[in-house]
Amino acid sequence: MWEYTDKVQEHFINPKNVGEVKGADGVGNVGSLACGDALKLTIKIDENDIITDAKFKTFGCASAIASSSVLTEMLIGMPLEEAKRITNDDIAQALGGLPKEKMHCSVMGREALEAAIADYTGAILPMAQGEVVCDCFGVTDLEIIRAVKENNLRSVEEITNFTKAGGGCGKCEDSLRSLLAKTVEDLPVSAAEPAQQKRMTTLQKIKKIEEVLEREIKPTLKKDGGNIELIDVDGDFVTVSLRGACSGCHSSQTTLKEYVEKKLREQVLDTLIVEEEK
């Protein structure tokens, strides 16, 4: 059972603006029967570039129908320029959120909107010009890069949740991973920090671990009359020896795992495992 918000349920059971606008100025068709969801969005735009009407026809699950319905509500009365800035997150927010596996439904809403606007302005859809990475669902690299950047995606699984890419045969998984790595690298440093997943040599690890021990961990332990020494680093296994008041302290395991390991994982490598010398 999906955890749908009341808002999603309301828009699913009683969807607003179902149908097609007569004499539409912009038509956006996205998705397909094979993909399991599809949306046809039709919009009417007046001479002041205000969207005066919007209707939808959707084949898909509850969140696809709800996303389409809430999108038409958002659009009616909105200036075109403002509509161009609507993101998938705006649609999901308007529904009070969507289950993470269903985020692609909000992405479909946004893509239909872009297609409808492009149809009106006569522009070529920029996203469709990319190279198809996921053959099963026809997702391009440009669409994936945008989803990663806008939604701060950090794993292939998240990319699948948002764009469906990789959700079929799975053959594109490696391409998605390298696309993700490349995109995250390009982002400003502050945003990229949580994904510190580079390969480190043992020597680099030791240096970095020593640094963190000296700078942060030792001073803290010394306050309680304890101390710590690095004994060995073997792969991800970090062997340490607890000294002073720490040795024989009944909560030393907690200190080791909850404090030392946590610190080292945060600042050196998040796969490290800290063990006490036997």
Binding site: W2, F12, I13, F59, C61, A62, A64
Partner: peptide, 14 residues
């Protein structure tokens, strides 16, 4: 044909 299963199930759920 031409409708999606989850949507059907949730209406049945009503």
């Amino acid at each position: 044909e031409y409708v999606e299963g989850e949507a059907i199930l949730l209406h049945m759920n009503q």
